[in-house]
């Protein structure tokens, strides 16, 4: 997978999360896992919190007309930048463009849950903060995660199995103090088996990319 292009000027003018260590770890993890991803023959892929949009743009340009990609961010500026990034990296086949459907919204709250999404990807706001209510607008929403950095993650987990298709997968970025073991335990209750796909020590943080598979029983 090629590292996608993005417009740095637009990104900073728009107050959107800049691709950072966590972004590139996720990109690496997805690149390593792309064959497995292809094996489940995904048709619908959703990234929650695309920020700059480089993750979903990279996937869209690899998977081309075989999938429909969606991206939903709570920050309207991130939506505009994501669409721009998707266009910048658009693969053109026979003069036609592949696009990413971009939405402004909160997690899966606006979606009908009908077990139809094959892949969900989320690099969430995982930084622990004392009080999440003080971080309600713009850029702080891209990192502020409340107690143990789990507030937004825990909001999403209970509905995942109703959104993800049989054989579907969920990729999640997390940091050690999010309590990785507990994430596995929680997800098991919600019908998923998890594993660590990649981890990396970066200044001040031990980052993980986790992969969860929906279990049939």
């Amino acid at each position: 997978m090629e590292t996608p292009k993005w417009n740095t000027k637009l990104l900073s003018a728009r107050n959107v999360y800049e691709p950072a260590e966590d972004t590139f770890l996720l990109l690496d993890a997805l690149e390593n896992d792309i064959e497995n991803l292809m094996k489940i023959n995904p048709h619908i892929i959703l990234e929650i919190g695309p920020g700059s949009g480089i993750i979903i743009a990279a996937l869209a340009s690899v998977l081309k007309s075989r999938v429909q990609c969606f991206a939903i961010d709570i920050n309207p500026d991130a939506c505009i930048v994501t669409r721009n990034t998707a266009e910048l990296n658009n693969v053109t086949v026979n003069n036609t463009k592949k696009y990413v459907e971009v939405l402004n919204g909160n997690l899966l709250k606006a979606f009908q849950l009908r077990e139809s999404i094959d892949v969900i990807i989320f690099n969430p706001p995982y930084v622990r903060t004392v009080n999440i209510e003080t971080f309600v607008e713009g850029i702080s929403q891209s990192w502020a995660g409340g107690e143990n950095g789990r507030k937004i993650i825990d909001d999403l987990l209970p509905v995942l199995s109703k959104a993800i298709s049989l054989n579907g997968v969920f990729y999640l970025v997390a940091v050690s103090y999010n309590n990785i073991e507990d994430l596995f335990t929680q997800m098991k209750v919600f019908g998923f088996v998890g594993k660590i796909l990649k981890s990396r020590q970066v200044p001040g943080e031990l980052l993980y990319v986790l992969k969860f598979k929906k279990t049939t029983s």
């Binding site: 309207p76 505009i80 669409r83 402004n104 919204g105 909160n106 709250k109 606006a110």
Partner: peptide
Amino acid sequence: SEGIPNMLV
């Protein structure tokens, strides 16, 4: 707006 639905409540 500009192709992006705003579903925030």
